[in-house]
Simulated assay, not measured.
Amino acid sequence: MNDRIVVGLDGSAESLAAAHWAAREAVLRGVPLDLVHAEEWSSPRDLPVPTSEVRRRWAQALLNETADELRARHPELDIDIRSIDGGPAAELAGVTSDANMIVLGSRGLGTVTGFVLGSVGMAVIQATARPVVMVRANEDAVPHPDGRHAARDLLVGVDISRPCDALLAFAFEEAARRACALHVRHNWALPPLVGYGAAYDPRVHAQLEMSATGSLSDVLGPWRDKYPNVGVIARASAGHAATELVEGAAEAGLVVVGRRIRRSSIGAHIGPVTHAVLHHAKAPVAVIAHE
């Protein structure tokens, strides 16, 4: 793997916020930053499409101006730029196959958007096994005076019934780099008990919560030992994971969620919880692929 972070740039406010976030992350990790522009131009019928030379000049100007702005803020950062012709999703997934991370801009409260009509962000997440971070064009995404990420804790959602080592490895490492606390959330649903009374029996509920809390503690034990300096605030509770994570994202510096790697082209590649968090969380969202 080449130690570097790749950010997709298209000139939107979201992608510029992503570039600033990626630059801070690259400084934090001590790795180079690649600014990549990939765009497939199309136009409604009867409207002219910019010539290839016009498109090339525009893309180069965008890359140069953004790189200059980032170098002024982070003079120690090694920045490379490149412009690629072709479908953005496929090209970005290709150039980031050996990178540490890819960072893209995202418009919230709707579809996750990237370069072409909202399809690129989702397509890149599905196409790559590398961590993908989606960044909003909000106050937390713009540059900070000290050139660092906002001093906020991290939030990770785990399903202890499935493998979650990849998520926890990323979350603990990131929290250790930022010297911040890590909030771990696991949500579970009440079993289909016979009769409504049993479902709301506080003794049954307390028993189930105690079992889930114990299981979560067992999962986190080795990671607490490996990262003793990371403060962990873990909670297992009944309810919807997406709601819990979206609400927690309001106070988080980064939300970490997972997606299962699917070898088949059939079926969803992004689960409903991750999909909801990508749509509605206000904080940057890191999507970690796992088996």
Rank of each mutant, 00 (worst) to 15 (best):
M1A: 14
M1W: 02
D3A: 15
R4Y: 09
G8C: 08
L9S: 12
D10I: 02
D10L: 13
S12G: 04
A13E: 15
S15C: 12
A18M: 00
E25C: 04
E25P: 01
A26V: 00
G30H: 01
P32N: 02
L35G: 00
V36Q: 12
E40G: 04
W41M: 06
W41P: 06
S42R: 12
S43M: 14
P44R: 02
L47Q: 03
R56P: 09
R57Q: 12
A61N: 14
E65R: 06
A67P: 02
D68C: 05
E69Y: 07
L70E: 03
A72R: 15
L77K: 05
L77W: 10
D80P: 00
R82G: 14
S83D: 10
S83M: 03
I84Q: 05
G86S: 03
G87Q: 03
E91N: 12
L92E: 11
A93E: 01
S97G: 11
D98R: 13
N100H: 06
M101G: 07
I102T: 06
I102D: 02
V103A: 04
R107Q: 11
L109G: 09
G110P: 13
T111G: 15
T113K: 11
F115K: 00
V116W: 01
V116A: 05
V116N: 07
V120I: 14
G121W: 10
G121M: 11
A123I: 07
V124R: 10
R130G: 07
P131Y: 06
P131C: 10
R136F: 13
N138Q: 06
P145C: 00
D146K: 08
D146W: 08
A150L: 12
R152N: 03
L155M: 10
V156H: 02
V158S: 04
V158Y: 01
I160F: 08
A166L: 10
F170W: 13
E174C: 04
L182Q: 00
L182S: 03
R185P: 01
N187R: 12
P191K: 05
P191V: 07
V194P: 04
V194G: 12
V194Q: 14
G195L: 05
G195D: 13
Y196N: 09
A199R: 11
H205G: 04
Q207S: 12
L208A: 02
E209H: 12
S211E: 08
G214P: 12
S215P: 04
S215Q: 15
S215D: 11
V219Y: 02
L220H: 04
L220R: 08
N229H: 07
I233C: 03
A234F: 12
S237F: 00
A238S: 15
A242C: 10
A242P: 10
T243S: 13
E247K: 11
G248P: 15
A249K: 06
G258H: 08
R259S: 14
I261E: 11
I261A: 06
S265M: 08
I266W: 09
A268I: 01
A268P: 01
I270Y: 08
V273M: 07
V273R: 02
V277M: 13
L278Y: 02
H279G: 15
H279E: 07
A281P: 02
A283Q: 05
A286W: 01
V287P: 04
H290I: 03
